[in-house]
Amino acid sequence: MSLSADQKVEKSVSSWITLLLAISCGVIAANLYYAQPLVGPISSAIGLSAETAGLVVTLTQIGYGIGLLFIVPLGDILENRKLVVASLLFTAVALTIAPVVKNAALFLIASLFIGVGSVAAQVLVPYAAHLSPDASRGRAVGNVMSGLLLGIMLARPVSSLVADLLGWHAVFFLSAATIFVLALLLAKALPARKPLLNVQYPTLMSSMWHLLRTTPILRRRAIYHACVFGTFSLFWTTVPLLLSSPAFHFSQKEIALFALVGVSGAVAAPVAGRLADKGWIRPATGLALAIVIISILLPLMIQGGSTAAVATLAVAAILLDMGVSANLVLGQRVIFSLGAEFRSRLNGLYMAIFFLGGAIGSALGGWAYALGGWNAALWIGIAFPIIAMIYYTTEKN
């Protein structure tokens, strides 16, 4: 009996390939967040006003959203390895251009392109699902997502420390070199995977709305994660403002070290994957949502600039990252089980929807903190997972 393309790839899976995919996703996803703690010096260098400085990060995120909707779905019709390598080479060029240009408009265009190319990580995640048999798919996706989440969480402190030592330009140059080397390594190491689906790009794109409309579990999982990712983005947008305020007087290095605390929350990703493989997706989802709610309740209970308050914030950061990591993997395990022929499109839709939730959370967090302080931001932050939990109670077994 002949094997399909996906079955052949599954037979070639190995633990070191999974590790390579996890590291690759982390390295790629970090590009979205390197600039976040560097907005001030970058804006000064390229002539952006304080009112428009946020565009440095926003344009990268917009580019990523564009890539999720228009590039990631290509994983269902194009050979995955070539698509990833081409995206990475494109990203390396954009990363090289960004620190060289002196004009604000050109820098922002380069930032947009960095976001577009960085969706290579979201081509690799369903690729990891293709590599794995159904019985261990959750574990494989969880392991790869733990790498991606570590990249996201480490990006801010790493860029702060590198910029402090070598200047902000070095962050982009070093990332460009790393991405270029990664592209060469993946081109050599990854097995090829040519999808069996043979349709034209316009047909592929028109199918996206149909998939969203006819796949209720995709909408449900995307709404769950849009809510918790909104809280995640709100917390990590506002907690640096709190720590640098007169209540705590944290320096940039101390804020960077605090951000490292949350990294340990990424261990929940592979654990969630294993729970999903055992068929415990629904109870694990409820637990993940509850952990996110608790993570925001804790800092509401303990206020001020005491040592206990710092410790509470650290525990909250770990719990928040654990809940978000677990819920993300559980959602992807569910949607990747729906069918190999449209995994990339489902992943693109899933990521785009919850990424919008993150953007809303970040915007509301900054607005609430400016108007009402830390408590106002927290009350908005806890509303998101509560909404998700209420929606969760309507899920049928």
Rank of each mutant, 00 (worst) to 15 (best):
L356E: 01
I335V: 13
M322N: 04
G381E: 03
A388T: 00
G373Y: 02
G366W: 01
A359K: 09
M301Q: 08
L319D: 03
D321S: 07
N347K: 10
I360L: 14
V310N: 00
Y369T: 01
A376P: 04
M322D: 01
A383W: 05
I296Y: 14
P299R: 04
F355D: 08
Y350A: 07
G305W: 02
W374G: 02
Q332C: 04
M322L: 11
L371Q: 08
R345H: 07
G361R: 06
F342G: 12
I296Q: 11
I386Y: 02
F336H: 15
A352N: 14
I386H: 03
T312Q: 00
F336L: 14
I294N: 07
G361H: 01
T312G: 01
N327H: 05
G305R: 04
A370G: 14
I335C: 09
G358N: 06
L349A: 13
N375R: 11
L378Y: 01
Q303S: 13
I387D: 05
G365R: 01
A326T: 03
G331D: 10
G323Y: 05
W374P: 06
A368C: 07
M301N: 09
G357P: 08
L328A: 11
L338Y: 13
A363M: 13
R333Y: 15
M301E: 06
F354H: 15
S344P: 07
Y350G: 08
L378P: 09
L330S: 11
F336R: 06
A326K: 03
M351T: 14
R345C: 00
G323A: 08
G372N: 04
F355K: 06
A340I: 14
S344D: 15
A370E: 15
I382Q: 02
G323Q: 10
G304C: 02
L371W: 07
V329I: 13
F336M: 15
D321H: 00
L298T: 11
A363R: 04
G357C: 04
Q303T: 13
N327D: 10
I380Q: 00
R345Y: 06
I318T: 05
F342D: 14
A308H: 12
W367G: 00
W379H: 10
N347D: 04
A340W: 01
G339Q: 13
G323N: 09
L319T: 02
A359P: 06
I353L: 15
W374K: 08
I353K: 10
A368V: 01
R343C: 00
L297P: 03
N375G: 07
A377P: 04
A308M: 10
A368M: 12
W367P: 00
V310P: 03
I294R: 04
I382C: 00
I335W: 11
F354Q: 15
L297W: 12
I353Y: 14
V334T: 15
A383D: 01
Q332K: 11
D321V: 05
A311Y: 11
F384D: 00
V329L: 11
S306V: 11
L320G: 00
A311L: 14
L349E: 07
Y350F: 15
N327R: 05
